[in-house]
Amino acid sequence: MKIRVGIIGGAGYTGGEMLRILLNHPNVEIAFVNSTSNAGNLVSDVHTDLIGDIDLRFTDSTDFDKLYKASPSGGGLEGAVLFLCVGHGDAKKFLEANPINEKIKIIDLSQDFRLAANSSLLGRSGGAFVYGLPELNREAIKTANNIANPGCFATSVQLGLLPLAAKGLINGEVHINATTGSTGAGQKLSSTSHFSWRNNNLSIYKAFDHQHLDEIGESLRQATGKKSPLGAELNFIPQRGAFPRGILASMYLDSDLSEEEAHELFETYYKSHPFTHVSKKNIDLKQVVNTNKALIHVEKHGNKLLIISMVDNLLKGASGQAVQNMNLMFGLEETAGLKLKASYF
């Protein structure tokens, strides 16, 4: 099966990672890479790690007829998908301004459609946007036409808490501390992404009020099977780290589980999910950077259960998970194009 792909907002970090994956995906043909700020420039002049791999130029065109060829028997492709790698708020504006053939599936990497209240787009049929966390919504993703890709912090935190939520074992406060690499701030330069400020530095931001808390809460409530509040307060302290990529999230809560019981619970929950792995040994960030893996480690300290969860914010936390969702939507092997090795040394 061949899937034709278009990328909107292809000049940023998530667009570059999307290209790096898709160029080596056995079932993908890249139709176009859109960037209004780089229209006419070679893709490899912006994403210089792709020199020798791609000869396409960025375009500001939105001619989606080039993306979808409806008839496989006539030499056309068998499917089409549009990845939206644009800023928060821009995805909805883009889709409202550019009606897209219903046969083209959409995977949005912004936060515009992640919450249930915002998951529908006026004029876009084919169902609401499905929240694209495979470890929670795999079956719904398989039949979806529109996917809202999860946030990077949200992915790491949710994977650390979903097995407990599914068993109704989150009833008190959860304390979460998570540190992200500088690429989590996007490519646009700001005072807190400057090398001279970020290097050898560490800072807290949006304490207790990060935008990913809403989607985390919705997913945990879904996992419990209840629409009512979780009965727990999520105390989330995000940090900016002095490294380019990756997220280390540590969380703890009161629990009656033993360490062995907790480990077994997590292993059972994730045994059918190819990218999420539970380790009895302590884990470190280099094990996930440049991969689509999520690693989980649990420890018991007195009556506290400590969960450590790690992902690459640009891959499992963004573009890699988006491709994982694409694979599920088109009935491909879930790991296709995503068997990536960590840069450990």
Rank of each mutant, 00 (worst) to 15 (best):
F153E: 00
D53C: 11
G331Y: 09
G331L: 07
E267F: 00
Y269R: 01
P150N: 07
M329T: 02
G15N: 01
D312F: 01
A11P: 00
G151E: 02
N146H: 15
L84D: 03
L121C: 08
E260C: 04
H297G: 04
L50N: 03
E17W: 08
I170L: 15
R221E: 13
N38Y: 12
I170H: 01
S279P: 05
I283R: 01
V278I: 14
H25M: 10
V5H: 01
A336E: 05
F345C: 07
R240F: 11
L122P: 12
S110P: 06
D254I: 08
A39G: 11
L257K: 04
D284S: 10
D214V: 05
R114F: 04
H88W: 06
I107E: 03
G302N: 08
K280L: 09
V33R: 03
T276L: 01
N282L: 10
L84P: 05
A140Q: 12
F83K: 03
N292I: 02
I283V: 14
D214Y: 07
F153N: 00
P163K: 03
L340W: 07
D63R: 13
S37N: 13
T14K: 05
F129M: 05
E260Q: 11
F330D: 03
D312W: 02
S156T: 15
A178D: 06
T224D: 01
A242R: 09
F330C: 06
K339Q: 12
G123F: 05
G75I: 08
R198N: 15
D214F: 06
Y131H: 10
D209H: 13
F94Q: 04
I308K: 11
K188F: 08
L189W: 09
T180I: 15
N327I: 04
I104T: 07
L162E: 00
K339T: 12
L328Q: 04
N199K: 14
G87A: 13
N27V: 03
L161Y: 01
G126A: 11
G217N: 15
K93R: 11
A117F: 08
Y344E: 15
K92E: 10
N199W: 09
S71Y: 14
P150A: 07
L42C: 09
L164G: 02
Q111C: 13
L253V: 09
V46C: 05
I170E: 01
N327V: 08
L340K: 03
